[in-house]
Simulated scan of single mutants.
Amino acid sequence: MKLNQFAIIGLGRFGSSLGRELSQLGYEVLGIDHDEEKVNEMSSVLTHAVAADGTEEEVLRSIGVRNFDCGIIAIGDDIQASILAAILLKDLGVKKVVAKAVSELHGRVLEKIGVDRVIYPERDMGIRVAHQLVSPNLLDYIELSKNYTIAELGVPKKLTGKTLSDINSRGRFGCSVVAINKPKGMIIAPVAEDVLTEDDVMVVIGTNRQVEEFQESIER
């Protein structure tokens, strides 16, 4: 299901950053926050911005939040408000509900009440930055699950002129290069004969260990 309309409850640092990016990508975004100052700051950025209590059922109903494809709960440290907003969005029939969690326990509660996706911005950013610091060719790192990772790896000089067949990531390590981001554009589902250059970025998917071993091999 393609998501085109997003309602964000909570316009703190995370919520406002998320809303700004979605708006820039061309999506319709409704921002909801009880703080009028935050709402005023985002009113020129988002499609709509409303000063209201996102934990009040009648408020959400009157705004028409049920008509949005995705409801995002970006409330900060008020765990009670976060959970209440999640319950209301589910009860109102929002198609997909995403919520920010501030702890593992908070996340487990959100999952129990049926939130479709729980995100941990601070934890996930820490993990990504740590990997980037210790791996010079790693440009980005996303943990898909406890066992699987997708990573963006810069192509080192020693691999310039090599084909995907030459590096044989799948045969040697079990991970796959699923895309190559070249200066002239992205190659999706590259073939064995595609040639790498130093300016390229490989998008690699595999188990954590497979990707780690592949990283180590190209950095040696």
Results as ranks from 00 to 15, higher is better:
Val59Asp: 07
Ile63Phe: 02
Gly64Val: 04
Gly64Ile: 04
Gly64Asn: 06
Arg66Pro: 01
Asn67His: 09
Phe68Tyr: 13
Cys70Thr: 11
Cys70Met: 11
Gly71Leu: 09
Ile72Cys: 12
Ile72Thr: 11
Ile75Tyr: 03
Gly76Arg: 02
Gly76Tyr: 05
Asp77Glu: 15
Asp77Val: 13
Asp78Val: 14
Ala81Ile: 12
Ala86Lys: 01
Ala86Tyr: 01
Leu89Lys: 07
Leu89Val: 10
Leu89Cys: 00
Lys90Gln: 12
Leu92Ile: 10
Leu92Val: 06
Gly93Asn: 05
Lys96Cys: 02
Lys96Phe: 12
Val97Pro: 05
Ala99Arg: 07
Ala101Asn: 09
Ala101Tyr: 13
Val102Gly: 12
Glu104Ser: 12
His106Cys: 08
Gly107Glu: 10
Val109Pro: 05
Leu110Glu: 06
Leu110Pro: 03
Lys112Trp: 06
Gly114Ile: 03
Val118Ile: 14
Ile119Ser: 10
Ile119Glu: 06
Tyr120Cys: 11
Arg123Trp: 08
Asp124Asn: 13
Asp124Ala: 06
Ile127Lys: 06
Ile127Asn: 01
Arg128Leu: 05
Val129Arg: 00
Val129Trp: 04
Leu133Gln: 01
Leu133Asp: 04
Ser135Asp: 13
Pro136Tyr: 08
Asn137Ile: 03
Tyr141Trp: 10
Glu143Arg: 13
Glu143Cys: 12
Glu143Pro: 04
Glu143Gln: 13
Asn147Asp: 14
Tyr148Cys: 02
Thr149Trp: 02
Thr149Val: 15
Ile150Leu: 11
Glu152Asn: 07
Leu153Phe: 03
